[in-house]
Design a protein around this nucleic acid. Structure first.
Lengths: 203, 186
DNA sequence: AGTTTACTTTCCAAAGC
DNA sequence: GCTTTAAAAAGTAAACT
């Protein structure tokens, strides 16, 4: 009887320690990505839900913590790409993506696809581009999306190409390399999306 | 308009069977030309047939898995070749061991571009998985028939998980009618 | 700048770790 | 869970020319 009781306390303590570790990891990753406190709190709430639903079993705490932060950013409309969260996590990108899909499905998070426009303010700001370029990029994204160009394309690559096109149109040119660095995509992807977009825009 | 069902093409058939007899894979690997056997990596011996093209995984238990065939007839033909090869090695194999098709992968074309964003929201986020950052296809799990469809922006699709060719036809019909109901196929 | 190769996703069986 | 096998879809990445 005493042994069972001690075991319960031990598991409870271990669970408590694991939860504290997960929450501090979320905080650490969020800090290095410059994610606001309100979003970290959303991530912590999702993590606790995942814990309550017993979704952590068979998965790494760090993996679930990272996925939870990724999901929270999307829910709050300030997405970070898997590339970006993977850069501050000790779990690889593929694992984070798989865990995110599992958690989102099990908790019925019903996440809508990421809108490329949600990346433009942050990317433009990191590139020191004007509001004018940002507005132009937004317009390019809206127009080309209406023409059906977005299906299947990565939101970061799509946003990066629109920003590249907008920077040219507004005479504030940034090189493909500079934009690729900020958006964490390759120059080849920017070229491919850019060609389609300017053609659809009739430029 | 061409019926999307007419564009269905079987791309891969997976089937299992068995010769009801234990095998010494080490000696089979020695005698069978072109056999790949690395028990440290995987317990099955890999044997590839050329006509029709397929890959057979042969296990110590005598059970066999055949993949890569383009039709159910090809699976039977490939396995017939495998059975004959084993017989050449003085291994007893019945006339026609039971062959069970486990999975059929098909491709098809709806003939129009698809707005995957609208489909993801329209068909309801519950049976749909669409993460273009991770994969360009939208994953749609059907209950009847019980298959999984991957829909692409081009209107092309992949259907997998079915046990018979008809499953893919039924799946295409359901997908088409559901997209039409939502006004997402036009 | 553009090409080639390789990897991402879905499915399934097998035996063993 | 993982390992291996096969195949399609289309996008992206890495490594070259």
């Amino acid at each position: 009887r005493l042994r069972k009781w001690q075991e319960r306390i031990r598991t409870k303590d271990a669970g408590e320690r694991n939860l504290q570790f997960a929450l501090s990891e979320i905080d650490r990753m969020a800090s290095s990505l410059g994610i606001p406190r309100s979003v970290r709190e959303v991530a912590c709430v999702i993590y606790r839900r995942a814990l309550d639903e017993d979704l952590i079993r068979g998965r790494s705490i760090e993996g679930v913590a990272t996925s939870t932060l990724y999901a929270a950013c999307r829910m709050e409309g300030i997405p970070r790409s898997l590339e970006e969260v993977a850069a501050v996590s000790r779990v690889e990108r593929k694992e984070i993506g798989r865990t995110y899909r599992y958690v989102a499905q099990e908790l019925s998070l019903e996440m809508e696809p990421v809108d490329p426009k949600q990346y433009t303010p942050r990317f433009c700001s990191e590139l020191d581009l004007s509001e004018e370029v940002q507005a132009k990029a937004t317009e390019i994204i809206d127009t080309t999306t209406e023409k059906g160009l977005l299906s299947g394309k990565s939101p970061t690559g799509y946003a990066a190409a629109a920003i590249y096109a907008a920077s040219l149109l507004c005479n504030e040119k940034k090189t493909q390399r500079e934009i690729a660095e900020v958006a964490q995509v390759t120059e080849v992807t920017i070229r491919n999306r850019y060609q389609e977009q300017i053609e659809a825009m009739g430029i | 308009m061409t019926d999307p069902k007419d564009t269905i093409n079987i791309e891969n058939v997976v089937a299992s069977t068995g010769i009801g007899q234990e095998l010494d894979l080490q000696s089979v690997a020695m005698d069978l030309e072109g056999a790949d056997y690395d028990p440290e990596q995987f317990p099955g011996l890999v044997y590839r047939t050329q006509n029709p093209k397929s890959a057979a995984l042969i296990f110590r238990s005598g059970k066999i898995v055949c993949t890569g065939a383009k039709s159910t007839d090809d699976v039977h033909e490939s396995l017939r070749i495998v059975f004959d090869k084993l017989r050449e090695l003085q291994i007893q194999v019945n006339e026609d061991p039971e062959i069970v098709v486990q999975n059929i992968v098909t491709s098809a074309d709806l003939g129009r571009n698809l707005n995957l964003n609208a489909i993801a929201i329209g068909l309801g986020l519950e049976n749909i998985e669409y993460e273009p950052e991770q994969f360009p296809g939208l994953v749609y799990r059907l209950d009847e028939p019980e298959v999984v469809a991957l829909l692409f922006g081009s209107g092309k699709l992949v259907i997998t998980g079915g046990k018979k060719p008809k499953d893919a036809e039924h799946a295409v019909d359901k997908i088409v009618s559901r997209l039409e109901d939502l006004g997402l196929l036009e």
